[in-house]
Design a protein around this nucleic acid. Structure first.
Length: 254
DNA sequence: ATGGTTGCTTAGCAA
C-alpha cells in the first residue's frame, strides 16, 4: 500500500502534473495541500477517470486540502472542529483500509515576530488537542502534509542560512517533538539516516542551488511503523517546467 | 540586508 503527500501549490496550475504523477506512482492514498481553489475548481472528473475517489476541503486563493484514494473513504472530517472561528481550510481527515489519514497544511508562519507565527504555534497546539480528542488510542493513524517544520539541522541543506526562521525555529521544532511525544513517528527519519529535502524556495533559485529543506512529512503511529518498508521523496518532480515548489513524499506499507 | 520566483488576482499578498 502506497501513501503519498504533496503540496501542489495550486491544483489548477498542477493538474497535468498531478495526473502524470498518479499514473506513474499509483499511490493508494494521496494527501494534497495548497489547492488554492474552491471544490468546484478541483479536476474531479480527471481524478475519477484515473480510478480515484476524492474528498475535498477547498478554499479560494489560499490553503485547501484533499485526500485521494483508490478505495472509497469513510468518516470524512474537515477542519479541527474545536470551536475556534478559523476560516482557513488546513486539515482534512478520512478513513480507508482501516487507517485514518490526515492531510495537513500547517501555517507557514511568516516572520518569527509576526502574528502569523503566533497563529502557527497556536494551530499546532490545536492540532495536538485534536489528536488527543480523536486519536487517543494512538493507533492506525497516518498524518501527512506540509508541516512547515524542518525537524532538525540534518533536514536542512544550509542550516546556518535558515536558523531561527519559521521553518526551523526552536518553538516549531518543539511543536514537532510534541507530535512525536504524542505517539507519532517520523517515518522518513525512522527508516533513513540521510538528508533529503521536500521543498525548495522558488525565490533565490533554491532548487538549482540545492537549498532545500525537509518540511513535508508522513508521521505514523507506532503500530503502523513496522509495516513501513520504504520512504521516498520524489525530487524529480521538482524539476522541469512549472513544478510545485514541493516534491511528493511517499511510503510503502505492507 | 536584499533579491530572487510563482500563483491568485488584478497591485498586492502569500509563500
Amino acid at each position: 500500500m502506497r501513501i503519498a503527500t504533496w503540496n501542489v501549490n495550486s491544483i489548477k496550475a498542477r493538474s497535468e502534473r498531478l495526473m502524470r504523477w498518479l499514473e506513474k506512482y499509483e499511490p493508494d492514498v494521496l494527501c494534497l495541500q495548497e489547492l488554492k481553489a474552491e471544490d468546484a475548481g478541483f479536476p474531479l472528473a480527471e481524478v475519477q477517470a484515473a480510478g480515484y475517489s476524492a474528498v475535498l476541503y477547498g478554499q479560494k486563493t489560499y490553503n485547501g486540502v484533499a485526500i485521494l484514494s483508490r478505495e472509497p473513504v469513510n468518516d470524512v472530517q474537515a477542519g479541527l472542529n474545536d470551536g475556534v472561528d478559523d476560516p482557513q481550510a488546513r486539515v482534512l481527515s478520512a478513513e480507508v483500509h482501516g487507517l485514518t489519514f490526515l492531510s495537513c497544511y500547517v501555517p507557514n508562519g511568516g516572520e518569527p515576530s509576526s502574528e502569523k507565527f503566533a497563529y502557527k504555534l497556536k494551530w499546532l497546539e490545536r492540532l495536538l488537542a485534536y489528536l488527543e480528542r480523536h486519536h487517543g488510542s494512538r493507533e492506525k493513524l497516518v498524518l501527512c502534509g506540509d508541516l512547515n517544520i524542518a525537524p532538525a539541522d540534518i533536514d536542512v541543506a544550509r542550516p546556518d542560512e535558515w536558523r531561527d526562521t519559521v521553518l526551523c525555529h526552536p518553538l516549531v521544532r518543539e511543536a514537532f517533538q510534541a507530535l512525536i511525544a504524542f505517539g507519532l513517528v517520523d517515518s522518513f527519519r525512522a527508516l533513513r539516516t540521510d538528508s533529503a529535502y521536500s521543498w525548495w524556495d522558488y525565490r533565490m533559485l533554491g532548487f538549482p542551488k540545492g537549498n532545500g529543506l525537509r518540511i513535508d512529512h508522513i508521521l505514523v503511529t507506532k503500530d503502523v511503523l513496522p509495516r513501513c518498508k520504504q520512504v521516498q521523496i520524489d525530487r524529480e518532480e521538482r524539476k522541469g517546467k512549472l513544478p510545485s515548489d514541493h516534491a511528493p513524499v511517499f511510503i510503502d506499507l505492507d
